[in-house]
Design a protein around this nucleic acid. Sequence first.
DNA 1: TTACTGACCTGCACGC
DNA 2: TGCGTGCAGGTCAGTA
Length: 286
Amino acid sequence: MPELPEVEVVRRGLERWVTGRKVADVTVSHPRAVRRHVPGPEDFAARLTGRTIGTPRRRGKYLWLPLDGDEALLAHLGMSGQLLVRPPDAPDETHLRVRLRFTDDVHELRFVDQRTFGGLALADVTPGDGVPLPVAHIARDPLDPDFDDEAFAAALRRKRTGLKRALLDQSLISGVGNIYADEALWRARLHYARPTETITRAQVRPLLAAARSVMSDALEQGGTSFDSLYVNVNGESGYFDRSLDAYGRAGLPCRRCGTLVVREPFMNRSSYRCPRCQPRPRRLHG
DNA sequence: TTACTGACCTGCACGC
DNA sequence: TGCGTGCAGGTCAGTA
């Protein structure tokens, strides 16, 4: 599932392969893939054709390709989205949604998405920092050099919710999804339902350090992939799933203390924790 | 204003 | 073999 490390791996691939290329034509095979482009698929294709792509950028799980002018091609991979760089004669993928051909005709960019939670859109960018308007409300991610630890700690303590809910709140901290939230909480030895208002600044520091270390480790290994749904632009999977300490390890011994990891329902999905390293707090939230 | 819930969507695993 | 069900989960509109 694409979270920050996986999206960054894709961004780096795009930086190498599509920067400076000019779009020759665009084919939208599935309108839902561009549903966030309100004027519709035809407008999307027409306005993208002939544009030159700048250096890809990212905030949290969103990435965008700056275009000449004050616009960008904004992408979110959702659950199963892939941005693939393919030779033009490569067979179409089963869930190919959008195809961009370039004027040099060496490679084409394909947006493939099985579950169609992801999508592409053209968006205006803010004049100052060049961030697309639909992404302006997204907080910086913990790997961003401008991420403000103190402001995050203060905002976290102002919340009245559970710790994991807060970690998944992209307006508070971006790039963290279900997998890396569980991993960061395991590394920081914190329970997912710990009330945010009880978190001390001294506990926020190791939590942020844990989030940064787990995502940096994942980035080094090309991201996390449990199946073929997450791949880089060349269609290759990452290896970090072999290094996960909590997520997906229900019934297996904790790598730290040997206690069996448990899976618990959380927000209509799952949370994994070690009952000994991450005991239930007296007060629960979320 | 803030926190929370459910819908969206598809393929796979599993049980019957 | 075929069918039904549960599960995976990021985002956002709607609700409390």
